[in-house]
Every structure is written in C-alpha cells, then in structure tokens.
C-alpha cells in the first residue's frame, strides 16, 4: 500500500520547521588533582552514522592555566569557544593579566544563560588551576548551571564513563583498608592511566567515540614535572616555565 497524503495536509500550509541543531558525538572528560588538572577529549566528529573527520579538536587552551572542553553541537561549540576567547582577550587588554579560573567559570555561565531561549547546544567542562594553586574542574549544562567538581565526564559516552570515574576517582563503593583512608587526590600518572582507560573503554562500546585522544595537562606554579617525564608524546604549550605549565598528550584510539 502506498501512503497517500490526506487532502488536509496538502491544502493547509505545511509547518515544517528547520532544525538548527545537530549532534556531533564524541566525549570529553576532566579530572582535578591536588596541584594539576587533566582535561581530555576524543577527536572524532560524526553526524548520524557518518564520521565527518577523525581529527576535530574539542579541547581548547584558553590561558596557560585554563582549558575548555566543549561537546554537543560542533558549530555551537566552536562559536562558543571563539566568543569565550574573545572575552578573555578583552579582559587581558583591560587588566593586563589572565582572568582567574573561577571568574572564567562565572563568565561562561553568564554567556550560556544569555542564550537561555536559543541555547548553545553544548556541554562545557572547564579545567585548570585556581588562584590558590589547586586543580579545579567546572562543569556546565547548556544553559549555564555549573558546579566545581573533582571529576566529570560529558558527551556521548558520559553514561559509560562517569560511573567508572565514581569508582576509580571518588572510590565509591570501596572501603579503605582498616585504619587507612582513601586519598582525596590521585597522583598525575594514575589520573592519566584512568583517563586513557576510560576512553579506550568508551571507544570499545560507543560508536561515536574513537580515532584520537587529546589530554591537556595543567600543572600548578612551581609544581615541577612530577610524573610527566615517563610519559611519551608530550608537547608543551606554555611559553613560560615560571608560571602554570600547560602540556598536551596525544594518543591514538581505535578507528572502527
């Protein structure tokens, strides 16, 4: 039987709405340490079942101590990062210093909520070093609700990764040995292995995750490299070694 459109749908005006959004897959993740933060994202960009590209960065350097990861609708994400960077540049010209992390977080909330009724369809995770030298992660919803946390996953494989992080970072459902307590912050090499494991797991079970992994590492001022030396394929992005130091570590993920 051929579906015949009824007269009503032909005579009355068709209300077919243009959909200004799409979903471009991928996953992002950030973990704060005592004096460092790791912000990571995969590099696959897809639409439906098609992989558009195997390398489209979702994690961006804002300053030497602040890194922003964006996930959701890629066009909105890129535009949003561009606008945040612009506001940070204006701040630099006005105040001759980089904006503090907690101020960037509040700025992002304001910018997201400004579009409350036509939102940027983007989940943001901001990571970096706070003024007091501690590692920090701020996570946002598309309309600007935000919270400081120790770790957060977002995007296509959020539901796969977040409970794993609860277990491995917050030690949820694990009892400490008698007379001992769980560490509040993990050392950098442990965090990096957990991030890599999270993404390889997500790649294995989610079709929108894979191709490549970019991990940004922000180290607090005067912290030293502690734990970075042993890791291969590290590239430093910060120009000064006196202040906070910023590195990017790249890894391949499965491409199927």
């Amino acid at each position: 039987m051929v579906a015949v459109p009824d007269m009503d749908s032909l005579v009355n005006p068709q209300q077919r709405q243009f959909n200004p959004y799409t979903e471009n897959g991928g996953t992002i993740l950030a973990i704060a340490g005592a004096d460092f933060t790791v912000i990571a994202g995969d590099t696959r960009q897809s639409e439906g079942y098609s992989i558009q590209t195997r390398y489209a960065p979702k994690v961006f350097r804002l300053t030497d101590k602040a890194v922003l990861a964006v996930n959701g609708f890629a066009a909105d994400g890129n535009m949003f990062v561009k606008k945040v960077k612009q506001r940070l540049e204006w701040y630099r010209h006005a105040h001759a210093k980089d904006m503090p992390l907690r101020a960037i977080a509040r700025l992002i909330q304001t910018m997201l909520y400004a579009r409350r009724f036509f939102p940027f369809y983007v989940y943001n995770i901001l990571g970096g070093i706070e003024d007091d030298g501690t590692g920090a992660v701020y996570s946002f919803d598309p309309v600007g609700s935000y919270e400081r946390e120790t770790c957060r996953a977002a995007g296509a494989a959020q539901s796969l990764v977040q409970p794993f992080l609860d277990n491995q970072i917050y030690f949820k459902n694990q009892l400490a040995a008698p007379g001992m307590s769980h560490p509040t912050h993990l050392p950098l090499p442990d965090v990096l292995s957990i991030v890599i494991d999270s993404f390889t797991s997500a790649t294995e079970r989610h079709i929108e995750v894979g191709d490549g992994l970019e991990m940004y590492v922000v180290l607090a001022k005067g912290r030293g490299l502690g734990g970075m030396e042993a890791i291969g394929g590290v590239q430093e992005l910060s120009e000064r070694t006196e202040g906070e130091r910023l590195f990017v570590v790249r890894r391949e993920l499965k491409k199927d």
């Binding site: 796969l160 977040q162 409970p163 794993f164 277990n167 797991s201 997500a202 294995e204 079970r205």
Partner: peptide
C-alpha cells in the same frame, strides 16, 4: 545497561 558496559569494560 549503558553504565554497566562502561564500567565492566574498564574493570
């Protein structure tokens, strides 16, 4: 199930 896939794949 999605969450269990993620955690089991890691553990």
């Amino acid at each position: 199930s999605e969450k269990m896939f993620g955690v089991a794949e890691g553990l």
